[in-house]
Design a protein around this nucleic acid. Sequence first.
RNA 1: GGAGAGGUGGCUGAGUGGUCGAAAGCGGCACCCUGCUAAGGUGUUAUACGGGUAACUGUAUCGAGGGUUCGAAUCCCUCUCUCUCCGCCA
Length: 431
Amino acid sequence: MLDSKNLRENIDTISSNLKKRKFILDKSKFLSIDKDRKEIIVDTENLKNKRNVLSKEIGILKSKNEDAGSILKKVEEINNTLDLKQGLLENAETQYNNFLLDIPNILDDSVPIGNSDKDNKVIKYSNDKNLEILNKNSNFKDHSDIGKSLKLYDQEIAAKISSSRFSLLFGELASLHRAVAQFMINEHINHNGYTEVNVPLIVNSDSLLGTGQLPKFKDDLFEIKNKKDFFLIPTAEVPLTNIFRDIVLLEDDLPVKYTSLSSCFRSEAGSYGKDTKGLIRQHQFEKVELVNGVNPSTSDESLELLVNSAEKILDLLNLPYRKILLCSGDTGFSSSKTYDLEVWMPSQNSYREVSSCSNFKDFQSRRLNAKYKNKISKKKQFIHTLNGSGLAVGRTLAAIIENFQNNNGDIEIPEILRPYMNNSKIIKKSS
RNA sequence: GGAGAGGUGGCUGAGUGGUCGAAAGCGGCACCCUGCUAAGGUGUUAUACGGGUAACUGUAUCGAGGGUUCGAAUCCCUCUCUCUCCGCCA
């Protein structure tokens, strides 16, 4: 949510900024909504003031045992008009709030202008030497076929147990999955300054409103039916970021950096027929999430650090990937600037997103009411929040399987993961 | 799941219908004192939004939402969270 004061005072600048992401701000509508609301507020406040003054007089008269009849009548009149105004006020407030909630975040100046993902800017390609080796593999298969032929992956049984878009991993592939997750979160804890948090996987609607999944993106969520106001988390961003909701941090405590390995649940409504094979698009998947609450003066640097932490995982796994700066048209609603990391998926001959790192500035913290106390001004100010995946575990596993497959269908275990796999080097078909 | 108790300012804790945004203490801040010295004194100290150059001033907020009333921290209803006991349980 944008700062309404800022919007009022800089409406032209903000409007042209939002235009970059194809959002047309109805300036005159905002100004009139804003003005109407204010007039009604001033109006009702004045009436309330009158009532308060008169009520006090009544109290004084009554304590002296004097008659307060005439004043009572006046107050009654005031209350009647106040009742009428109340409806108007509520109406004006809803209009005002809805208008503000529908406005996306202001884009950072460094975000390239563009319409779609085609206009995203590639910052760099990494580890691309693997690419050549892979292209020479004549028996090349996708990760789900490799898993199946090793008898370590099954989607059909998962469909029986649950439904489509679920998977079962067996044996060493299950272990490898766990190893990937362990490795990732350990990196962030041990080398990137993160505090591990174990979070609730079920959250209430307030939390989802705070991070922006609600009200706009309800269809993407799993809602728990028999328990009202319960949802499965689509990402650990929700519980982690909501740690900051309604609290005031000390400036010296910033930045606060939390990480969590959690399951994530997404309904994937509207993606029928897309990525039906394999681990790419599942209703349930694991992800290591990184969340920062920072001093507003340092959030630009924090975003770079955050994306570097995620990149390092791919580097250490020696997976080919590219780093992308999303263009104005592709940057998410709440984000002011977003980097994506995309890992090379040879079977699809394309790069697939494994991480998305965003700086929300004060857009989320305003909704969350997440503040810190400024040491100099002693004022409470909104923190800046950031988050990023570090990384999506299932997709990373798929990328490992595909990029580290051998001609004979075995999977080589990336060196950095071997300590997590009893030092074995390879996953072979058991005969 | 059953029974009970309770949610008041940074903290502790008064306040059961009327000059209560809220006593007192602690803590914080400012100044003063400097032979009561790991002390003493005085003052000050919530947040959000609005009006005013400013002094100042208005409205709202005592877990949340609704209700009663001219007037609610205080009465009624619903919800929620915490604590204690019992049951169940990984």
